[in-house]
Design a protein around this nucleic acid. Sequence first.
DNA 1: AACTCGGGGAT
DNA 2: ATCCCAGAGTT
Length: 357
Amino acid sequence: MEKKFTDILMEWHKQHNSREMPWKGEKDPYKIWLSEVILQQTRVAQGWKYYTNFITRYPTIRHLAKAPDQEVFKLWEGLGYYNRCKNLLFTARQIDRERNGIFPDRYEDILALKGVGPYTAAAIASFAYDLPYAVVDGNVFRVLARYFGISEPIDSTSGKQLFTGLAQKVLSKNEAGLYNQAIMDFGATVCKPVAPACSSCPLQPYCTAFKEGRVNQLPVKEKTLLRKHRWFYYFLFEHQGKILVNFRSGKDIWQNLNEFYLLETEEQVKWDEATVKAWLKEQIGIGKATVNHISPVARQQLTHQQIRGQFIRVGLPSVPSFLKNYQWQPVEKLRKLPFPRFITSYLETPAFQETLF
DNA sequence: AACTCGGGGAT
DNA sequence: ATCCCAGAGTT
């Protein structure tokens, strides 16, 4: 059953490897690494442009290593999971410094890199060096769970072990790179999460889930996530052509990105000019201010939380001392700084653009 | 083992 | 609205 799986999959790939991507067939470990980090929990279509932008700007790992943080984060802006970008830079600089810019070529050394886990290490090892390591990503979990009829949850520790062992067992070890491409392409185009193409699937005659009518029940996940609701009210304090900007550095979302002065609440606040002025005076001690604009409610859906909020532009005739610890950026510099999508969406609106002073 | 980290597209 | 995507790091 295992050999049949591998043989049919490889045969399918020879006839259907038409899923073109800019990094396919690439042998430069730097480019493979970059593409795999970009694609972590990210659709190919979404990561595509980011990859080409990065390669154009940083053709080698040394170019990336020498780039300033802010510039790289700006290039990553909008892609999400910003810790990937932080680790990408850390690893580029480490390889530049400690290995003379040469990417490691042993699985254990690749896996030891920051931001490189079991999936990415197997991908680099197999694609760049043809080492016999099977990738285990969302596609692999799904294809294996269905073909072998496995109900073990894929998000449990024992489940991950089980699937990793099975993936390694069915790996075509003398053509690991091709095989890894094959199973991921197959999962993405045939054995899809919703509405899989079972009627035209070459594995269908041997597929346990198909035989038992369980295709839509597999794979199994045991954890369900709860979505938090948060209200973010951003005050754009403006003084002499500059805006107060805050760098996010805590444990929360959007680390290493910038924002404005934030008031977070659990419940919605109904703002108008009078309530803004009252809040400024009573809560943060600003007596003299003009309320220049209150945006409509904006919304940002994240995987694990929903952000709603508004942007409130406040003109200050003078800067109170407790706001002097922040950065004050000229308005025209804002486009150089990385912001979360929730904020860039507002910065791109005509309501903001037209009122630049 | 459980939590946390984005954003977007398909359904 | 819900699911899931070429997952990884921290607690």
